[in-house]
């Protein structure tokens, strides 16, 4: 048994050699993400009332509410600032804002990261 201690890892490497690799060839395959993965911020626009609860609690100031009147407001999401913590989903009392596990492609264009989640203009 003492002799084994000089080649302790030998059986391990032989086993690893003959079994499937544990790593994956990343960019050429797509990875499965968990259901609860926080990938992007979405909204059910019809539920949003523009109460700014999510804006108040956002730790990264990634949400912005431009409010003109009760029925005229715009909720903007700055994805480049967002930390995807999910606090907005917790803060929302109207079941409007939520996170899902899809995530977007990266981009070098800043405008790509500014998303208007809700845009409500008063009906004429």
């Amino acid at each position: 048994m003492k002799l084994r201690s000089y080649f302790y890892l030998l059986p391990n490497i032989v086993r690893a050699f003959f079994s499937k690799p544990d790593t994956v060839n990343y960019p050429s395959i797509t990875l499965e993400v968990a259901d609860r993965f926080r990938g992007s911020v979405r909204i059910k626009a019809q539920n949003c009332v523009g109460c700014s609860l999510c804006v108040r609690d956002c730790p990264a100031q990634a949400l912005e509410l431009e409010k003109e009147s009760k029925n005229s407001f715009r909720l903007i999401h700055y994805r480049d600032r967002c930390t995807y913590c999910g606090q907005c989903e917790l803060s929302c009392r109207f079941d409007a804002i939520f996170l899902d596990n899809e995530y977007d492609e990266p981009s070098s264009n800043r405008a790509h990261f500014i998303v208007t989640l809700v845009e409500r203009v008063p009906e004429e």
Binding site: I13, A16, F17, S19, P21, D22, T23, V24
Partner: peptide, 11 residues
């Protein structure tokens, strides 16, 4: 490649 396979990587 061999070392990678010994370590369980693709290489």
């Amino acid at each position: 490649k061999l070392i990678a396979r010994f370590q369980g990587r693709i290489g």
